[in-house]
Design a protein around this nucleic acid. Structure first.
Length: 311
DNA sequence: CTGGGGAGGGGGCCC
DNA sequence: CGGGCCCCCTCCCCA
C-alpha cells in the first residue's frame, strides 16, 4: 500500500536540482485537446479497460473476494479497503472527506480514462495477475477508481438520487453539476463556445474558459523564490521543494515523494511488466514517457514517425 | 540510450 | 461560482 509519511523529509536524499529548471513557455500539451474517454468507449461498444493496479496482491485479494460482478469495486468498511488505505485519507492537514464510495453508481458505470492504445489498459490480459507476484505495483486506492481522471471523493453516506448524463451515462449529485457537465459535450464549433481574450483558445463552456483564464493569472507567489503559480496547490507543491517535505511514500522501497504523480510514476518502476511497446522495434517500457523518449530518439530518428506512433 | 525522479501545468469534478 | 483536489501529462536533469 502507499501511505503518506507525515513529516518525512529527505529520507532518500538526492542531489537537488539547482533552482527551478528553465521551461519553455510554449510547452506543447497534448491534453489541451479534448480526449476521448472510455465513458465514450462504452457507448461506442468498445471493450472496457482493465484496471492494472489490481495486480497489487493486497488490493487484488480484497477486491476480487468482495467485488466480483461489481467491476472490481471492493467492499470495505467506511468505504475503504482496510489494508490498503488511500494516501489522501491520511494526508496531513487535509480534509478527511476523501473517501471513495464503494456503493457509488459511478464506480459501476464509469471506466478508466485511457484512450491511448499504448496504455497498459489496452494491452493487459488476465496474465497480468498470474505473472510476477514478487514484484507488484502498490497503489493508493484512489488510483483504482479513476473514471475520467478525476477525484473519486464521494460521501459515503450520501444517498439520494443521482442525475445521469444522457450522453455518457455519468452521474452527478446535483442537477447543476449535471448541467455543467453537459456543457463539456458541446462542440468547439458550438455557438456557446467561448474564446479566451488573452490567448484566443476556445472552450466549450464558460466554466471551462473560466478555469483556463486562471492560468493567465499567476497570483500565488512563493515567498521564498518569488515564483508565481496559477493555483494555490501548485504553490503548495512547489513549497515542498523548499521544505523538503515528502508526504507520499512508496510501500515497496520506502522512497518518499513530494508529489503524488511522481510516486505514481515511481510505482510503475516496481512493476515487472512493461506495458508500453514501441510499434517499430517492439521494445517495451514501463512508462509511457520512456516510450515517448524512445520515439524521439533512436528508433524513429530520421524516419517517418507517423507510421509508428499511434495518435 | 534508457531509467528514474523532480517539478510544474491544465482541465475536470465535487462541495 | 470559487476553492480545493485530483489525475494526467510533459519537460528537464541526471545516473
Amino acid at each position: 500500500m502507499c501511505f503518506p509519511i507525515p513529516g518525512l523529509t529527505k529520507r532518500h536524499p538526492k542531489k537537488p536540482h539547482q533552482g527551478p529548471p528553465p521551461r519553455t513557455p510554449t510547452m506543447p500539451r497534448s491534453f489541451l485537446v479534448k480526449k476521448i474517454k472510455l465513458d465514450d468507449f462504452s457507448s461506442a461498444g468498445i471493450a472496457a479497460p482493465h484496471y492494472p493496479h489490481f495486480d497489487d496482491p493486497c488490493v487484488l485479494g480484497q477486491t476480487l473476494s468482495g467485488a466480483v460482478g461489481n467491476l472490481g469495486v471492493p467492499e470495505a468498511e467506511e468505504g475503504f479497503i482496510p489494508h490498503c488505505i488511500t494516501s489522501s485519507k491520511y494526508q496531513v492537514g487535509k480534509k478527511s472527506e476523501g473517501k471513495f464510495d464503494s456503493s457509488d453508481p459511478d464506480y459501476t458505470q464509469e471506466q478508466d480514462d485511457y484512450s491511448d492504445p499504448d496504455s497498459p489498459q489496452s494491452s493487459l490480459s488476465a496474465g497480468y495477475f498470474s505473472g510476477e507476484t514478487a514484484v507488484t505495483d502498490s497503489y493508493s486506492i484512489d488510483a483504482f477508481f479513476i473514471s475520467d481522471g478525476r477525484s473519486r471523493r464521494r460521501s459515503e453516506s450520501r444517498g439520494g438520487q443521482r442525475h445521469i448524463c444522457s450522453e455518457c451515462g455519468k452521474t452527478y449529485a446535483t442537477s447543476s453539476n449535471l448541467s455543467r457537465h453537459k456543457q463539456t459535450h458541446r462542440s468547439l464549433d458550438s455557438k456557446m463556445a467561448k474564446k479566451c481574450p488573452t490567448c484566443g483558445k476556445t472552450y466549450v463552456s464558460m466554466p471551462a474558459l473560466a478555469m483556463h483564464i486562471l492560468t493567465h493569472n499567476l497570483k500565488h507567489k512563493c515567498n521564498v523564490c518569488s515564483k508565481a503559480f496559477s493555483r494555490p496547490w501548485l504553490l503548495q507543491g512547489h513549497m515542498r521543494s523548499h521544505t523538503g517535505e515528502k508526504p507520499f511514500g512508496c510501500a515497496h522501497c520506502g522512497k518518499a515523494f513530494a508529489d503524488r504523480s511522481n510516486l505514481r510514476a515511481h510505482m510503475q518502476t516496481h512493476s515487472a511488466f512493461k506495458h508500453y511497446k514501441c510499434k517499430r522495434c517492439d521494445k517495451t517500457f514501463a512508462l509511457k514517457s520512456y516510450l515517448n523518449k524512445h520515439y524521439e530518439s533512436a528508433c524513429f530518428k530520421g524516419s517517418d514517425h507517423e507510421c509508428g506512433i499511434d495518435s
